[in-house]
Every structure is written in C-alpha cells, then in structure tokens.
Design a protein around this nucleic acid. Structure first.
Lengths: 159, 159
DNA sequence: GGTAATGATGAAGTAACATCACGATATGAC
DNA sequence: GTCATATCGTGATGTTACTTCATCATTACC
C-alpha cells in the first residue's frame, strides 16, 4: 500500500538516530546509556536505595550495584548508609553531577524545541496530537502482551 | 515552556516501547535484535560477504563473524564459499528464514497501519509530514557531528 | 613475482544484562 | 522476647553485543 518508508520505518529511524547520538555524546567519558538512566532517575526521584532504582529502571538489583559502582568511582554519585534501614544504601547525586543533569535537561528541552521547529507551523498541532496518539496506541499494544509485534518469529527454523 | 512531556519525551518513549516489544517477541527463540538486523539486511541485500554485512550494519567484521555463527547454528543462515574470491564467505538466508522474514514484513506493515490508524484521520497528513520533517532534521543534526545532543556531559566530574 | 591490501577468525577485553547463593538486617507471628 | 521469613546488597558465574589487535589465507597491484 504505502510506497516509500512507512510510519514505522520513520519512527524506527528516529529511535536509531537518538541512540546513535546518545552513544556518541558519551564516548570518551565514563558515562553510558545505562549509567545515564540511573542519573536521570535520581534527578527525578531524589536519593534512592538501590532496590528502588532497580524497580524503577526495571533491571535486576545486581545490575544496579554494578552501575552505581561505576558512577560512584567516576564521582557522579555517592553511597551513604540508609538512616533507618541498615541493610540499605542510599544513592545520591554529587553536586557536579547535579549540575551536569541540569545542563542535560537544558539540552533536552533545546533539542525538543529544535525538532518541533522543523515541522511546518501549520502542522504542529496535528503532529503533536498524532505523536500522542501513536505513543498511546503503542503503549496499549505493548501492555497487551504481544498484541503489537514489531516483528515476530513464531517458528524456530532448524533449532 | 512546555508543561507536560515534550516531543522528545514522546519520541524517546516510543523508541523504548519498540525496543521492549522487540526484545519480548524474541525471548525464547535464539533471535536477538542484533541477529535480526543481520537477517533483515540479508533480505534487502541478498547473499553477502561478511565484510559487506559489517559495512552495512556499521559494526566490526569480527562481530559479524559471531552473529553469523549464532544464526548459522540456529539454521537461519548458511555460509558458502564465495565463487570467485576464496578468502570470502557468502552468507545466505535459509528457506525457513526467508519465510520468517516474509512474515516479519507482513507484521511490520500491519503494525505500521495500526499505528497510523490511531491518529485522527484529519491529522494524518500533517502528522506524516511532521514525522518526516523531524526525522530529516534529526538526521541532519546527527550528521553534523554533535550539533544536536540528546544529552551532553561536557565535563567529567572527579575523574 | 614480491609487496601490500583484504576477508575471516582467534584472543582478549568491556558494558549491560541475568540468575543464584549468601550474609546482614528487618519484620511479623507467636 | 524469639524465631521464621522476607528484604537489601553483593560475590560468583554466564550470555550477548560489541571492540581492537594479531594471524593467516588469498588477491591485487606494480
């Protein structure tokens, strides 16, 4: 039906471009996508136990230990004993990391604006509605366990 | 300025949902995102040397060796000697893998249609123009080496 | 016909995950 | 109070996706 690239193609391309850009920005520093997710979460949630981080980031607690290890060693984050629970550790952003995150947020908004500027003024409202609609639909599909498959290998040839 | 989630937020969310869906579809099979990229490329490019795959997928030749190893073992792909260059190996999709890829393409188009259906009919044209515009702008930013940073850590605190 | 580029792979290393086992602590039942 | 049980962090171990570097064919060039 659709001749050229489909919506999906475009969206996937955009995804890929984001990842590529992200990765390149970090190359050279000790930051990575996964570690930055931790920082980003701490900005929004404030000092947290590793367990809380694991839950919110939807990764194993063991993995968080490793990520925090790296972030702590690079000075982005500090571990301190939890005031009431002696099993737990509180992870907190260091001041330089907080400053860095503020900068990231500025860049984030700036890029958002730049991207929106690229779409013709007359189309903007419709575009925003469209994005929201697509995001919501996709959210629904993903939640509905596999209803929406980006691609699906139902058979395993010659296993 | 913008109160709720920005365009960027939405786009990033969509990226994440895609990845999540993809990964879940593959869980249980021996397919992964990276391996599927190889299959996908072979569909479009036909039988290829590993070198060609490495170039097109923008990964190291060594990595391709590993990916093809896994795909070959699972029966998705076959290695054969290159007819004229005895150094090279030709990688070809097996018939079951070809069938699988056809199915994936069908699903791909179907999902694309489903997503587009989610946006109000009156907004569709503007939405498509918007997506294209954003993709192009982003492509430009990424190409212009770091002009568009999704996030940027210019300093390395306490290294 | 000898040197240089090229194709695939072994070796070794990193990052992001996962699971499992374990020790330290909290908590809730009795 | 005490004791079983659940929870928090981490060591050990394994997988996947990558990388670079070295090696070994083979091919291409002068």
């Amino acid at each position: 039906m659709t001749p050229g690239p489909t919506v999906l193609d475009r969206l996937l391309e955009i995804s890929e471009l984001f990842q590529r850009d992200l990765a390149r920005e970090f190359s050279g520093t000790s930051l990575t996508t996964a570690r930055t997710r931790v920082l980003w979460d701490l900005v929004h949630a404030g000092p947290s136990t590793q367990q809380a981080l694991a839950t919110r980031l939807e990764v194993s607690a063991r993995n968080v230990t490793g990520l925090v290890d790296a972030l702590e060693q690079a000075g982005y984050v500090e571990r301190s004993p939890h005031p009431t629970d002696r099993r737990a550790t509180l992870v907190t952003l260091t001041p330089p990391a907080e400053e860095l995150m503020r900068e990231m947020q500025r860049d984030h908004h700036e890029l958002s604006a730049t991207l929106l500027e690229a779409v013709p003024a007359a189309d903007r409202d419709a575009f925003l509605r469209g994005i929201d609609a697509v995001a919501e639909r996709l959210r629904g599909l993903v939640a509905a366990s596999g209803a929406g498959r980006t691609a699906a290998p139902p058979i395993e040839p010659v296993p």
